[in-house]
Each structure stands twice: as structure tokens, then as C-alpha cells.
């Protein structure tokens, strides 16, 4: 499913957060969105997924989602958003419970999503018994179980330590190679953008406008290899050069209100 964002503008109580975002995302593409703090990255993701109504502009879904997609626009949240009173399998099953599937079909889908995310042995565990990385795997499994057409990832790895982040990046790439979807990936982390995205949208500080679109030509699957390090580092440097001054200004703005 392709996406087209036309003139997305959004204000919070008169404060302009996003201004005239126009963007096309092709089916199967991974687009990262980066920018200084407060530039409206998460707001943009909220608007694309229908959780926020834009002040102006519209989001168009072009083409039909796959037939078995139960929730075409599906989020993966930074803070996992797991129900602490449900075990892993029940957390994943939550996304299916209002779709009229048979119990067997639900169980089958949940088992497949857990297997895909390496959680097969943890189906009965409660979230409090899991590490941060495992909790985010549950969040990813819950997103995959509905077979989304568009995956909206809101800083999915930012609550994790560096090693876990590295591992989950590899896992995300493996999952995306098997499960076709279009992906919008909001992140503060330039390494993640350089490793995972086909294109990186750089937003300016508030009000967020598209400042530059950086295309990364090297196939995503090759970027984990040692030989790819200079390319990834080069992209990272380019992204940092684009946002560095504004990131510093945004930080001062946050500190001084």
C-alpha cells in the first residue's frame, strides 16, 4: 500500500507543530523520520495512523491492503504499551479479539507472531517478567499479528540499551524481509535511520517542515556487513550535519522553556 501525505499541518492550542508536509511513501519502503526534539515527528505518525486529526491536509492510502490485514495502520510504541495483567500471548491476542476470528484461528495467528519474534517459549510470561527487549518483541508481535499494510514505529528502540537495540535492529530487518509492509519509522537515533531506512526524511525544528530527504542507495540487507560501515557512517554524518544546529537550538528551547 502506497501512502500520500498532502499538506499535513497541525497546531496544538495555536502553536504550529507541523507545517505543510507533503510526502509519498511507496509500498514496501522503509522511511525514517528524524529531526530535533519537538519537531513533530510523533505528531506526524499519530496523524498518519488516524490517532490525531490534522489541522489541515490529508493522508491518502493508495491501493488496497492485503486481504488478511485486520488493522492496515498499526503502531509499535516506544513504551511498548503492554497490558501488565495479560500474559504475552494474551497481549498479542488483544489485537485480534474484536475481529470475529475463531479461537483456533486466533491461536494460530498468535503462535505464528510469537514464533516470528522469538517469543514462542514466553507465551505464558507476564510483561513484568520480561526484559525491555523482550517486551518490545511482544509489541512487535502484537503489531505483526494483524498483518499490517503500514507499520508505524514510534521510536521503537529508544527505551532499550545499546546491545538490545543492535539485536532488535537485526531482528526487525529479518522480519521485514519476510513480512511485506510499508514502514514509517520515527527515531532520534541516526544510526537506526542509517541502518534501517530506504529514505530518511529530515524535519526542521518546530514547526516541522521537510528540510531534506536523504536517499540511501545501499540495500538495507547489506548494511550490517563490516564493509558497509563507511557507508552507514557517512549517512550518519550527513544526517547529523543536517540537524546538528537545530538540535542544539531545540535543546536550549526545551531547557529555557
Amino acid at each position: 500500500m502506497d501512502l500520500r501525505l498532502e499538506g499535513i499541518t497541525h497546531s496544538y492550542d495555536g502553536l504550529l507543530a507541523l507545517d505543510g508536509i507533503d510526502l509519498e511513501v511507496r509500498d514496501g519502503e522503509t522511511v525514517a523520520i528524524i529531526g530535533p526534539s519537538g519537531c513533530g515527528k510523533s505528531t506526524l505518525l499519530g496523524i498518519v495512523g488516524g490517532l490525531l486529526k490534522p489541522s489541515a491536509g490529508r493522508v491518502l492510502a493508495i491501493g488496497a491492503p492485503r486481504a488478511d490485514s485486520l488493522n492496515p495502520f498499526t503502531y509499535v510504541f516506544q513504551d511498548f504499551a503492554l497490558l501488565p495483567w495479560r500474559n504475552v500471548a494474551a497481549n498479542v491476542a488483544l489485537a485480534l479479539e474484536h475481529h470475529g476470528l475463531s479461537r483456533a484461528e486466533r491461536r494460530e495467528r498468535v503462535a505464528a507472531a510469537l514464533a516470528l519474534t522469538g517469543l514462542g517459549e514466553f507465551a505464558a510470561a507476564l510483561p513484568k517478567q520480561l526484559s525491555g527487549g523482550m517486551r518490545q518483541r511482544v509489541g512487535i508481535a502484537r503489531a505483526l499479528v494483524v498483518r499490517p499494510a503500514v507499520l508505524l514505529l514510534d521510536e521503537p528502540l529508544s527505551a532499550l540499551d545499546a546491545q538490545t537495540r543492535e539485536l532488535l535492529m537485526e531482528d526487525l530487518l529479518a522480519i521485514w524481509a519476510r513480512e511485506r509492509s510499508t514502514r514509517l519509522y520515527v527515531t532520534h537515533n541516526l544510526d537506526e535511520a542509517a541502518r534501517l531506512a530506504d529514505r530518511v526524511i529530515v524535519l526542521s525544528r518546530r514547526p516541522g517542515r521537510i528540510r531534506e530527504i536523504v536517499r540511501i542507495d545501499m540495500p538495507v540487507a547489506e548494511r550490517g556487513a563490516p564493509t558497509a560501515l563507511p557507508v552507514v557512517a557517512g549517512v550518519r554524518e550527513k544526517l547529523w550535519a543536517l540537524i546538528r544546529d537545530e538540535a542544539r537550538d531545540a535543546e536550549r528551547e526545551v531547557q529555557h522553556g
Binding site: G49, A81, L83, L94, A95, H98, R142
Partner: peptide, 25 residues
């Protein structure tokens, strides 16, 4: 509130959000 937002993002109907999220929470 992030749990309610999560439930809305999966399209849970309001009654299901009350019984599956709000009341247990």
C-alpha cells in the same frame, strides 16, 4: 493513557476499551 491509545490504534470498540483496559487498569 498510552494503553488506551494503543487499544484505539488496534481499533478496539469503546466498550472493549472500558472492559479490557480501563476496568482492569
Amino acid at each position: 493513557r498510552n494503553l488506551i491509545r494503543m487499544a484505539q490504534s488496534f481499533g478496539l470498540p469503546p466498550a472493549a476499551i472500558v472492559w479490557k483496559i480501563l476496568v482492569p487498569g
